[in-house]
Amino acid sequence: MIQIRNLKKRFRNNTVLDGIDLDINEGDVVGIIGPSGTGKSTLLRCIDLLETPEEGEITIDGAVYSLAEHDRRQTLALRRQTGMVFQRFNLFERKTALENVMEGLVTVQKKPKEEARMLAEGELKRVGMYDWSEHYPKHLSGGQQQRVAIARALAMKPKLLLLDEPTSALDPELVGEVLETIRDIASQGFTMMLVSHEMNFVRKVANRVIFLDGGKIVEDGTPREVFDRPKSQRAKDFFAKMHLLKQPEYTI
């Protein structure tokens, strides 16, 4: 059980998150959608303390962490509970795929090299990248890099996996393999928060969808409830726009 309470984040005068409360059950896959600039990514980054919010706390398995005030020890403790997958993969450039996955196991969890290697190879197999273990990021396509990044995050056995628009930096033809990987790990019972613009994917993979607007949770429910019967006007407008985009430019 993960509880987020009263998360508030401002950038100067711009309130990005305006008191977010969220309870996430173990094994939940929470899709976060909404117009751009409504704090979807900021929400994830605050949970991982890559941004420091003004207020807010998170409880993971009974342990309470303040998001607003934290010393170095608390920061590390929280980060060790969470895993992050970035939009731009952010693999370590000078390390092979295998070393990327091993890095946290060795330096953070202080596992012996051999054990770390075995675990890392297991994770690479899980995302179908085992054959590319010895390759450096520059040898890999965007989709492959993202799969390694997912393996890197999973290797740390996070209680909560945060995926920040994992496919938006990819060429369209590479999106599929990454979505497949995410769907695969979602079905394995990892608790995840997923920010994505791939509405159809969110619909398929998430068992709960949150619509953020103006720093607040506007819709919260099963994919069917949110996508098919949105209650708020804002969400209705948003989906209408998305559908408009999908229509042909003109018809004869």
């Binding site: 991982d48 303390l49 890559l50 170095r72 590390l76 980060r79 060790r80 969470t82 895993g83 992050m84 970035f86 731009r88 993969f89 952010n90 693999l91 370590f92 450039e93 000078r94 390390k95 890095e103 946290g104 330096t107 953070v108 990044a149 890197r152 995050a153 740390m156």
Partner: peptide
């Protein structure tokens, strides 16, 4: 790239660790 430093932090590395290793 800042992203790599963020990734190192997200994995749970301290700044000195990230500095030395990444």
């Amino acid at each position: 790239d800042r992203g790599q430093i963020e990734a190192a932090s997200a994995v749970g590395m301290t700044y000195p660790q990230a500095l030395r290793r990444i």
